[in-house]
Amino acid sequence: MKTLLSAIILLSSVSAFANCPEFKVPKKFMARESLFSSRATDMTFDAGGNRIAKIEERLLSATTTFDLYDNKRQKIATARQRMFSGGTEIEIKDCAGKIIGKIKERVFHNMFDIYSKYSILDATGKVIAESEKKEILAPSFSVTGTNGKQLMKMRLSTFSTRSLDEWVVEILNDTQADPRILLMIPAFKTSADNRETEK
């Protein structure tokens, strides 16, 4: 009887865990960095004065992990960063550990500037959007779908400081990209820039 009861409790917790909360983002919102410590970065997402999500960075021995929480403090996604030759890959999983997509970054240098290109992949590994970050004057992102339509844009706000980033994010068209993936871009880039500054 005790074994059966334990099995029922286990199955109940697994099924509850597998049902991840629904998550949507508004058409325009702010992504604000808050320095958690000298080695990790948190980012909050607000729209109209209301918190919609938060990302907390965890630095493990070999990898960097980003945990995404909704406004009820429920974990809705986790992203793990992996370095490879020529760039970085971020794998994003939902609260049940199922892959929902990836972000692949490639960094380019030329005589005038440094810029990053991001490929956004869905759960099957198919590229569904491309993002490019320009470093001229003020950093900005543009996310474009495979059909050529601009899906999202991000720019540093006038309230950003040398120590803390604040992004203005706008969703311009419907996108196949899971919103949990899109929120990882400003958080990841801010964290990467912070680590570069510490070198």
Rank of each mutant, 00 (worst) to 15 (best):
Y118G: 03
G97I: 07
I120C: 05
M152H: 08
N50C: 00
A79H: 02
T146K: 15
S37C: 04
I9F: 09
D113Y: 11
R73E: 15
R180P: 02
K153E: 11
P179E: 06
D67V: 10
R80H: 04
L10I: 14
I76V: 13
I52V: 13
G145R: 03
C20A: 07
F141Q: 02
K126E: 10
D193S: 07
M111Q: 13
L156K: 14
A53M: 02
V14R: 08
R80K: 15
S61V: 14
R180Y: 01
V143M: 08
K75F: 05
S34Q: 08
K153Q: 12
P21H: 12
T44C: 01
A79T: 09
K149E: 15
R82W: 01
S163W: 10
I100F: 01
A47G: 00
R39E: 09
T197K: 15
Y115N: 08
S157C: 05
P179K: 06
G87V: 04
D178Q: 09
S160Y: 08
R106K: 14
S38D: 14
D178K: 07
M83N: 09
Y69I: 00
E198C: 04
V25G: 02
K104V: 13
L5H: 07
G125S: 07
R32V: 14
N110Y: 04
N71W: 05
A16V: 10
G125I: 09
E91Q: 12
L137Y: 06
L164D: 08
A7R: 08
K27Q: 13
K98C: 00
K199I: 11
D94F: 01
L10G: 03
N194T: 03
K98D: 13
N147E: 11
M184C: 09
K134C: 05
K126Q: 13
A96W: 09
T161K: 06
T78W: 00
S142L: 07
V107D: 09
M184T: 15
N19T: 12
T146C: 08
G86T: 03
G86Y: 04
D70C: 09
S38L: 15
C20R: 04
G145C: 08
E22V: 14
A53L: 06
Q74W: 03
R162N: 12
D165E: 12
D178L: 06
A31F: 07
V127A: 11
S12T: 14
I99V: 15
S140G: 08
Y118R: 03
V143G: 06
T41V: 14
M152T: 12
R58V: 06
V14F: 11
G86E: 05
N147G: 07
T124P: 02
T175I: 07
M43R: 03
I76M: 05
H109W: 11
T124H: 14
L172W: 04
M111H: 11
S140T: 07
I100N: 05
G86W: 04
L151Y: 06
A177D: 02
D113M: 10
G97R: 06
M43F: 10
G148D: 04
G145D: 04
L5Y: 11
T65S: 10
P186W: 02
L68I: 11
N147H: 04
A192V: 10
M154I: 06
F159G: 06
Y115S: 08
A96E: 11
M154K: 02
I90C: 10
A177F: 01
L121T: 00
K28A: 07
L151T: 03
A40Q: 15
Y69F: 15
E196T: 15
R32I: 14
